[in-house]
Design a binder for these strands. Structure first.
Lengths: 181, 181
DNA sequence: CCGGAAGTGTCCGTTTCCGGACAGTTCCAT
DNA sequence: ATGGAACTGTCCGGAAACGGACACTTCCGG
């Protein structure tokens, strides 16, 4: 993490929240914290975050992780590019697998090792960055990627690639020339 | 699983292989099995699979899951659309998280429940199908998606969307009209 | 070996797209 | 309330792209 990321930490336990902030703050441009996910949408809308570190339980005594999965879903609905790292003290394989299938970028068990937490959050911030870059592309880049994939899939067969892309062969030749393919 | 999927099972233990095949065969068009991943590339090249069910350990006494992660990487290099379900008897949260981060579609602990195995493999086959559909698109569809995303990201602002896409405003208007956006 | 199917690369008359410019509208800071 | 910036929607002469057609090459089954 090059120190330029903005991190949101959502954790109901004040001591854990403080520990996470202390661990991450030196490695981030900005760390914002919340202790409940009730107003998660507003918080997400208020700023441009690069990664969310999200606890899985926000109700005292609750251990199922449902809150965290729900908050993950709401985060992904708000911004599908924004990578989320989930953390819990009560997770098994099933919950970890479910979390990643639902789109979490990583899954951390408490208590964590600071170096692993920092690395996981940094990697997640990079995932967000990559997704955002991929989202904002010139049509030319989008077209070039599609042509490259079609040619790869058809092993260089111009006729088949053109057909798949909905182009005539001369038209595909021109697009290939335009993109130096 | 609508019974039309082709499944590859890679498992070194003969009894486990048989049990998996017995569980899955009634729900698939075809099930192929291998007991070593040495020739995985050739097997993958020999047919068009919809899902791979892959053990994580192929050396007697080995429990790290490295074989499985390596085979997963090779499978994804061969065909990034092909969904892989990993299974092991020795997995903890860390291995499960690593597997999904490396691109596994699911992670099953042995011994499994047949209904869960069948559901996981069916879901993975659907992931493969979706990825393949998404890969083969007309340029028109690719262009339309890119325009829709740019407009969504800029909340309908034509000037900003055109700029991001590398188009002039009139050109964007024409593409939008062409795609009925 | 051969013939036919499939694929390649280019041409050119016709059609479509281009973007700077124009007129008008909306939004926001003062 | 107002003025200016930002945005919208369309026009039109010129430029670019279109695809059917042609000639040629490669591959493969008989």
């Amino acid at each position: 993490m090059t120190g330029d990321a903005t991190i949101l930490i959502a954790e109901d336990d004040a001591d854990v929240l403080r520990a996470a902030r202390i661990a991450l703050a030196p490695h981030a441009a900005r760390v914002e914290t919340i202790s409940t996910v009730d107003g998660l949408d507003q918080i997400l809308a208020s700023g441009r975050f690069d990664v969310v570190l999200l606890d899985m339980n926000f109700v005292s005594g609750e251990r199922s992780g449902g809150d965290g999965l729900n908050a993950l879903a709401r985060t992904r609905a708000f911004d599908p590019c924004l990578a989320v790292v989930l953390m819990t003290a009560y997770g098994g394989v099933a919950l970890a697998v479910e979390a990643l299938k639902r789109g979490a970028a990583d899954f951390i068990l408490k208590p964590w090792r600071n170096d692993k937490l920092i690395a996981a959050v940094a990697a997640a911030a990079n995932i967000t960055r990559s997704r955002r870059e991929k989202e904002t592309q010139h049509l030319d880049a989008v077209e070039r990627s599609a042509i490259e994939r079609a040619l790869a899939r058809h092993e260089g067969n111009i006729s088949l690639a053109a057909s798949e892309l909905g182009l005539s062969r001369p038209a595909l030749y021109r697009r290939m020339a335009k993109h130096s393919l």
